[in-house]
Design a protein around this nucleic acid. Structure first.
Length: 395
DNA sequence: ATAGGGTTAG
């Protein structure tokens, strides 16, 4: 109950207070920690239970492998694999096989994942999909599609998850034709009616293949859309250089009742920055906090500073740098000085440098950047003078 | 009673 209510510390407390604990109570706590992304704790529990003389069962191993997959702990994963083999647990349990293939695939050990799959007494759509996923994540899209063929040759029908990976493979290869065949199959299975993730993967496949207008049609025909659907389409337009359309989608998504998230804001802010759309960028930057509940990241600031910098609104840019913590300011001075470098304006760069210096004398990067700008303008004397200053101020 | 694979940027 506590695990399902996401009150993991209460679950832990109850477990500690039990007069006796069996493998099931431990398994429940372990799966709870994994659910909360507290993977180290989960693995710790596996050790603790063994220490207390309780042997892991196949459910424990499934969770343990999932934990290893999450943090790419290949050595520990191999250790569990060994224990599983010694106990002969793979012979009669299909879930364990899937978890094992997934663990190797997530750790980037595709050939081991492949070998494990081949040696399983039973293969199903899940263990196959885990392997296909591994190939896709490694960028080996051809292999991923070959696997899906082989799977179907064994009489196993792809499901929504398999299709997501097959579509991603097509996107990597820009294989619109193959993607379209998969699309037909998905429609035939009626999978688009209640699966937004699959719908989004389809939109993404067409977008990445350069068919953004098709992607848009798919998006519009989905039974509903979420923030990822719109982000995918916006990214597609950006990729094709259709920035106007990208900005329009930003409006459409809000009309559609979807609140932009951090990904949306990052994309749109980049578009504003590329296009020199100061007003739009500034409005978005303000709305992030007040309307969308998105805390501007360091990248958002970098974007705004590049935008202000290129437009010559340096006071605004400097004020923005002053807003963020010292930890991020180095990056932002880089961005600001960088925008001076592009316009090759030595005077402006010097002014920005003075602003930076008055804030943080120990920061070397401002010296390096101004030095580069002097060098680009062949002002060797200034380079030397600056070097002298840097040595005095930074050491 | 507890357990396996999934989407978007740069």
């Amino acid at each position: 109950m506590y695990v399902k209510c996401r009150a993991i510390s209460d679950a832990q407390k109850v477990l500690e207070e039990l007069s006796s604990r069996d493998v099931v109570s431990w398994n429940i706590l372990i799966s709870g920690y994994i659910q909360e992304d507290e993977v180290e704790q989960a693995l710790d529990c596996v050790e603790q239970m063994q220490h207390k003389g309780i042997l892991p069962d196949l459910v424990t191993y499934v969770s343990a492998l999932k934990a290893c997959a999450k943090i790419r702990a290949i050595e520990m994963g191999r250790h569990f694999h060994q224990e599983i083999t010694m106990q002969g647990l793979l012979q009669n349990n299909i879930e364990l096989g899937g978890a094992l293939v997934n663990m190797y695939a997530k750790c980037g050990k595709i050939s081991e994942a492949q070998r494990v799959l081949e040696e399983l007494p039973f293969r199903d759509v899940i263990s196959w999909s885990a392997l296909i996923a591994g190939y896709v994540e490694e960028g080996q899209a051809e292999q991923a599609l070959k696997c899906s063929d082989q799977m179907q040759h064994e009489g196993i029908v792809p499901d929504a998850v398999t299709f997501v990976y097959m579509l991603r493979a097509c996107a990597i290869l820009r294989e619109t034709k193959r993607g379209r065949r998969i699309h037909v199959e998905i429609v035939r299975q009626g999978l688009l009616q209640n699966d937004i993730i699959l719908g989004n993967a389809l939109v993404d496949m067409y977008a990445k293949c350069g068919e953004v207008s098709v992607a848009r049609c798919i998006l519009e025909e989905l039974p509903f859309r979420d923030v990822v659907s719109w982000n995918t389409l916006i990214a597609g337009y950006v990729q094709e250089g259709e920035l106007e359309h990208a900005l329009n989608c930003f409006e459409w998504m809000q009309i559609d009742g979807i609140l932009p998230d951090a990904v949306t804001c990052a994309c749109v802010l980049n578009v504003c920055s590329q296009q020199g759309l100061i007003q739009k960028g500034q409005t978005l930057f303000m709305n992030m906090i007040t309307k969308y509940g998105v805390k501007p990241s360091l990248e958002s600031y970098t974007c705004m500073i590049a935008l202000f910098g290129h437009a010559g609104h340096l006071e605004k840019a400097v004020r923005l740098v002053q807003e963020v913590s010292a930890a991020g300011s180095t990056t932002l001075w880089h961005a600001l000085m960088g925008s001076c470098q592009k316009s090759a304006d030595v005077n402006v760069a010097e002014w920005v440098f003075e602003q930076a210096e008055s804030l943080d004398k120990s920061d070397e990067s401002a010296y390096v950047l101004l030095g580069n700008i002097y060098a680009a303008a062949s002002l060797e004397g200034q380079v030397k003078r600056l070097e002298g200053m840097r040595i005095r101020n930074c050491y």
